[in-house]
């Protein structure tokens, strides 16, 4: 079962896919290359929003909304606060990346990683179709989460608690130290 390029474009869902994937990738690219720090973080928002869109396409609605709420709602705020507190160059253009002597090998490495993984995946899965699916019911997920996966769930909650306490402990200002 092979899918040619023309067959790919005949399916309407694939147009929706491209409409989400292309902006996602573009935003991802700008996140790592933009020379304006606030813009870079906002591009990250777009990119993560794109992944949420892909999740919706795959019927994983609960996960998609979680990404929207947790990442776009909370994590981005954290990033922006981090930027502001560390007094990063908020102005227009600044040199946020290393020079060319770092960029070139990094680009090469990234390309090779992309190439190797893509090749391996194409080799393994060819162009297998995703079987028809129903959107995953949130109730199913929650039942699984509190039954089969309850111990990992509890462990993760402990990790979050530890991270919370650890964050406070690290970032707390010591009385003696004058900043």
């Amino acid at each position: 079962m092979t899918v040619t390029i023309s067959e790919f474009f005949k399916e309407s869902a694939n147009w929706a896919f491209l409409a989400i994937a292309v902006p996602t990738l573009f935003a991802g690219w700008r996140t790592v290359t933009s020379n304006n720090i606030v813009r870079a973080v906002l591009y990250l928002v777009v990119s993560l929003g794109g992944t949420a869109g892909l999740f919706f396409m795959l019927g994983a609605e609960f996960v998609g909304w979680t990404v929207v709420l947790v990442y776009i709602g909370a994590v981005i705020i954290l990033f922006l606060i981090g930027i502001m507190i560390t007094r990063a160059p908020l102005g227009q253009e600044a040199d946020l990346s290393h020079a060319m002597n770092v960029k070139a090998p990094a680009a090469l490495l990234s390309t090779v990683v992309f190439g190797v993984i893509t090749w391996a995946m194409i080799d393994a899965f060819g162009n297998n179709m995703i079987p028809p699916f129903e959107p995953t019911a949130t109730s199913d997920l929650s039942l699984l989460l509190f039954d089969r996966f309850v111990i990992p769930f509890e462990v993760v909650s402990f990790v979050l608690l530890a991270a919370l306490i650890g964050g406070i402990a690290i970032a707390r200002q010591d009385e003696e130290v004058v900043s």
Binding site: E11, H98, V102, A107, I117, I122
Partner: peptide, 25 residues
């Protein structure tokens, strides 16, 4: 929809992330 199209997008994002981790100051 094929599986590979999602995987390629994911791999591309991953590579961008890797590039950013290495080059960002």
């Amino acid at each position: 929809m094929t599986l590979i199209q999602f995987l390629i997008v994911a791999t591309a994002l991953f590579s961008f992330g890797l590039y950013g981790v290495i080059t960002r100051k």
